[in-house]
Simulated assay, not measured.
Amino acid sequence: MELECWGEDWGITSVDPECLKILAFAKFSGAPLVQKSTNNPFWSPKGNLPVFRHNGIVLTDFLAVAKHLKSCNYSADYNLTNKQISEAGAFINLMEESLKPALQYITWVDTKNHINLTRVWFGKHLPFPYGLFYPNRYEKAAVRLIESLYPQFSEFGEIGNDTEVETAVYKAAQECLTLLSNRLADSHYLFGMSASSVDAVMYGYLAPLLKAPYPNNTLQNYLKNCSNLVRFVVRISQNYFPKVVKSFDERGHQEQKSEQGSTEGRQEAEEREAEWPNQTRNKVEIKQNKNQEQGRK
């Protein structure tokens, strides 16, 4: 079993929600899934990632992959009752209807995020010349999705920042986050101490929203105020993807040390520059005093 997907960054094993959902479900179910961070959707069936491959079977969406893994006796839902399975399905539908469009919006439609984060990331990680093609394709797909969900606002107007569409997208996402936070409460996972498929979907959407360095971070700040959802993301990252978290933390410490070193170096240089005219003046004054003493003699 292998999953071709977008690579890790920001302390999470993949920057893409769809990839994260499958990777998390595989971890929860114990499936021997191998992650291949190709960052290249050219050979994928739909021109996007993830792509799941197993024994000649090729799948591209979470529900199909989860169903296939269950048929191979890898499931994260064995401990759930029929009622809990129905409730989990309802929460998954809620997240698909609210959080998925919100992430598409803030990643591809929000101008500030799109220019300063999304374009930069994909341009850096996609092989040339795909970095010139796929971001445009994904942006257009996100715009079509938002316009289809909010046709009453987008038919004759803009859908970008400071519009009714943005307000509607944020409102739906915030209501969803509040419901998830209330349902999770103080539990480790939505249904107690064991992670299930709904937790995989939840992690897939919350982790990028929490960890990505969005310049326009209105929805991210709302999520950060839901402290139990933040702990949920951190718990799964540390328990199931510890190497990714450790690697990210180490890079952060190294960057911090290098910044401190460069700052100290600049300060020393500035101090030397500030001392230089004083030292020269002092030398001149000493030489003048010596000449005066010799003249008196």
Rank of each mutant, 00 (worst) to 15 (best):
N221M: 13
L80N: 02
Y205V: 01
V245D: 00
S194Q: 15
L209R: 02
N161V: 10
K112G: 06
E273H: 13
K124H: 10
D61W: 01
V65G: 05
E155T: 13
L206F: 01
S71M: 11
P41S: 06
V120Y: 05
E250D: 13
L184N: 04
I159W: 00
Q292G: 04
E250F: 09
L59T: 02
F62T: 02
N282Q: 12
G7Q: 05
K100D: 14
W10Y: 15
R281M: 11
N289Q: 15
N289G: 07
T107D: 02
E96C: 07
D249Q: 11
P242H: 11
K224G: 04
Q238M: 09
E275S: 14
S194N: 13
K211A: 10
P101D: 04
D186I: 08
M95N: 03
Q267P: 00
F133E: 05
N93L: 12
Y74Q: 04
L3F: 08
N39V: 03
E8D: 13
L117G: 01
N93R: 14
N113I: 06
Q279A: 14
D16C: 14
N291V: 07
M95I: 02
A168N: 09
K67S: 14
V234N: 12
L49F: 07
N39P: 02
E164G: 09
M202C: 10
R272S: 13
